[in-house]
């Protein structure tokens, strides 16, 4: 793991989350899930930058990256459907996975 990348990435992410938390007090409700989706993507990017590869995380990042988050809040209903699908995708994956195997889903 590249500790410099991890450290700077973590600081950026912590700032993003803390500043978002404060900002959301005054911002439209839909910005909350939007910021959390962005944070999810940032977290996966950070893990990838630090050498962690996992098929589930790669797929989640791909799905979030393909969703037009910047089109919000015009497409709020589509966004909700997107999150529902993502959650079900995660639930299906977790349901199928063998949690006893430590390397489950890890990519080479």
């Amino acid at each position: 793991m590249n500790s410099d990348k991890f450290e700077s990435g973590m600081i950026s992410l912590v700032c993003f989350l803390a500043v978002s938390a404060r900002g959301l007090v005054d911002e439209p409700k839909v910005y909350g899930p939007m910021r959390l989706m962005e944070a999810t993507h940032k977290l996966i990017d950070l893990a990838k930058d630090c050498g962690m590869r996992h098929e589930l995380l790669t797929e989640v990042a791909k799905r979030i990256g393909e969703f037009p988050l910047d089109a919000l809040p015009e497409d709020e209903e589509e966004f909700i459907r997107f999150m529902d699908d993502l959650v079900m995708f995660l639930a299906t994956w977790v349901g199928r996975s063998d949690s006893t195997r430590k390397d489950n889903g890890k990519e080479d």
């Binding site: 950026s12 700032c15 993003f16 500043v19 900002g23 910021r35 988050l69």
Partner: peptide, 8 residues
Amino acid sequence: KMFSPGLQ
């Protein structure tokens, strides 16, 4: 950018 969640 670190303090601007709306800046993409």
